[in-house]
Design a protein around this nucleic acid. Structure first.
Lengths: 142, 142
DNA sequence: TCGCTTATCTTGACTCGTTCAAGATCTCAT
DNA sequence: ATGAGATCTTGAACGAGTCAAGATAAGCGA
């Protein structure tokens, strides 16, 4: 499990061969502080840090971070894309059917869950993504 | 495993307490014949059957069919919604990273795969959805 | 079989999340 | 310090899906 070191977004970017810019530092910090936030929330957060950033820049930054492997993108059905800084491990997500809240779930069966399919339809599989659906503690009550 | 009986979409609809209409019969048949098709393909298919159906009707029909449990909706990240008539069993999907092709995968671990999470974050989980990512036989070659 | 009620379908506008494109600006290697 | 090129800004555009109002037709009861 790898946790982002806020204090040093700069070195993370450098290590990934990405130019160090204000938008990138801000978005990186926001993603780390707000797991599973969507673009809108991240953009707002980045704006409170910097005063002003274009929405497009936030999209661009997120693309860079994702393809550099610093950030992971998830997209549960019916929800806009969400981002998290927890990368490199094989954890999954629970999504609330009511409110859309997302939480992390460690995989019970190890690091490559359900990856041995008897019938893989001839596909060369490299990832198994598990999404659990249900009710979050809050919506469960109502 | 339950397979749609085309010849008798009518009785399926009746059994589900849905009015039997031309658009519904057409879409139902299309979904059964084209597993994992998206709205666009289904609408086109329905049109070759009926001559003319509004896109909105296709959306409405699919909503009805899905909430009646006659059709299942899946939505892999980055793809429009897709529909299939295979319902009632717990099978999963492989999605090709290149071309987006989708295939069925029977779950290796039985009917409720990976459903025992050690840490469920307090959620009341009722479904575990597994999506495998990789390359389809075709894209694998290129 | 005929109406009547109401679910369903048509049409057309509109939203949301995201991408595209062109030019301005900033990073950082030299 | 400077130039090349990556990154950001602005503004238009797109695809998937929804909303809303009125027209149509399914299927109930008579």
């Amino acid at each position: 499990m790898r946790i982002v070191d806020f204090a040093d977004g700069t070195s993370m970017l450098r290590a990934a061969n990405l130019r160090v810019t204000q938008p990138r530092l801000a978005v990186l910090a926001e993603v780390a502080e707000n797991p599973h936030a969507d673009v809108d929330q991240l953009a707002r957060g980045a704006r409170t840090r910097l005063g002003k950033v274009s929405t497009q820049a936030v999209y661009d930054v997120l693309h860079s971070l994702v393809s550099a492997g610093l950030v992971r993108r998830i997209e549960p059905a019916g929800s806009p894309a969400r981002f998290e800084a927890r990368v490199g491990d094989n954890h999954h997500h629970v999504v609330c059917r009511e409110c859309g809240a997302v939480a992390d779930v460690d995989c019970a069966t190890g690091s490559a869950p359900c990856l041995d399919t008897s019938n893989d339809a001839g596909y060369l599989i490299d990832e198994a993504e598990v999404t659990y659906w249900g009710l979050c503690p809050r919506c469960r009550r109502d």
